[in-house]
């Protein structure tokens, strides 16, 4: 079948257009992947087309790129997935949120410097004796294989909506890597790690948009890991961030009344003595007053709040503590 590739090109050495698109039409079989076509173009049509790829089986993490607007691995994406009325048209672009070096090749230096910043190695101050391993149950270890399945392809970073507005954000890959150590029963520097991760640009800056969950080709669920980190931080007493307070106030509101008290949420998240932050809320409050959009100041309780409270009591006690 015929497949049309429209590929974004960039050649830093060219004195003509800096960025452009080239279109190639190639003949591929039904089972072909997007990468098969790109390799065919590179070998048979245009030797200058530049991309990274190696294993062809979704383990080396080289070929993450944007295909029809979304980050994915070219090697485990079938061209036939994009068939529409008998036509297959692909728009192939480099991954986002990283500087482009040439064509589909981006600079991973910022990516790796963030991964390196979370101290990505096991810290165990009392390793077992020579020829003895750490004793740990399968249950306490194997849940980590989900996050250790990460191949560092950068798809999550490419499509992260926070990184789009703030390059300083640690990002889903580095935070998932951090989670891998925080939740490893052999690692004994959890407190130190959580303290570092609660800083600005860390775990609380994720906006929970689920882009990383959606685009991850290995089911790593980076956002789920970030949520777990937040849970661990709160459990370990790291509660003095706007993020942790926001969660606490929100939860309290649901617990006490059954639903969200929008009026109190900002006041109590910032703290009523946080004059600077509260002053910042004034313009929006004025705007809201003008258009009569202020949430009710007196927040009523839901009729069956006692039932909700009983559930809180029961389930909150069941919280599974980290080992």
């Amino acid at each position: 079948m015929k497949v049309e590739y429209k590929v974004k090109r960039y050649n830093p050495e060219s004195d003509v257009a800096l960025e452009s698109f080239d279109t190639y039409v190639v003949e591929l079989d039904q089972a072909a992947t997007v990468l098969d076509g790109l390799i065919k173009i590179r070998e048979e049509v245009d030797n200058t087309l530049t991309l990274r790829c190696s294993c062809r089986s979704a383990i080396c993490g080289s070929c993450a790129m944007r295909i029809n607007g979304q980050a994915m691995l070219a090697c485990n994406t079938k061209v036939s997935d994009f068939e529409e009325n008998g036509n297959i048209k692909l728009l192939v672009e480099p991954p986002g949120n990283m500087p482009v070096i040439k064509d589909l090749v981006v600079d991973f230096v910022p990516f790796w410097s963030k991964v390196k910043s979370v101290d990505p190695w096991l810290k165990s101050s009392h390793p077992p004796k020579y020829m003895e391993e750490h004793i740990a149950s399968n249950e306490s270890m194997l849940h980590l294989s989900g996050v250790m399945g990460c191949i560092m392809c950068g798809a999550c970073v490419s499509d992260c909506t926070v990184l789009e507005v703030d390059k300083s954000f640690l990002g889903p890959a580095a935070l998932a890597k951090a989670y891998r150590f925080v939740s490893d029963p052999r690692d004994d520097s959890t407190k130190f790690r959580l303290k570092a991760l609660e800083k600005p640009s860390g775990m609380w800056d994720c906006t929970r948009c689920m882009q990383c969950v959606e685009v991850c080709p290995k089911g790593v669920d980076p956002m789920g890991r970030i949520m777990k980190l937040r849970d661990f931080a709160i459990q370990d007493g790291y509660k003095n961030t706007y993020g942790a307070k926001h969660t606490a106030v929100f939860t309290d509101s649901v617990k006490n009344t059954g639903w969200l008290n929008e009026f109190q949420l900002p006041l109590r998240t910032f703290g009523i003595f946080n004059v600077f932050k509260l002053l910042g809320l004034l313009p929006i409050l004025l705007d809201a007053l003008v258009s009569r959009k202020v949430p009710p100041v007196f927040h009523h309780k839901l009729p069956s709040v006692s039932s909700i409270q009983r559930i809180f009591k029961k389930v909150d006690l069941q919280i599974t503590k980290r080992e």
């Binding site: 929970r208 949520m227 937040r230 849970d231 709160i234 926001h246 969660t247 606490a248 929100f250 939860t251 509101s253 649901v254 059954g258 639903w259 969200l260 839901l302 009729p303 069956s304 709040v305 039932s307 909700i308 559930i311 809180f312 389930v315 909150d316 069941q318 919280i319």
Partner: peptide, 22 residues
């Protein structure tokens, strides 16, 4: 009328099972 807030993903950060029960 007596149904609680869904948790909006915020409550779930603290305790997913609690959110699921609600």
């Amino acid at each position: 009328e007596g149904a609680s807030c869904t948790g909006a993903g915020v409550l779930q950060e603290k305790n997913q099972k609690l959110g699921d029960t609600l």
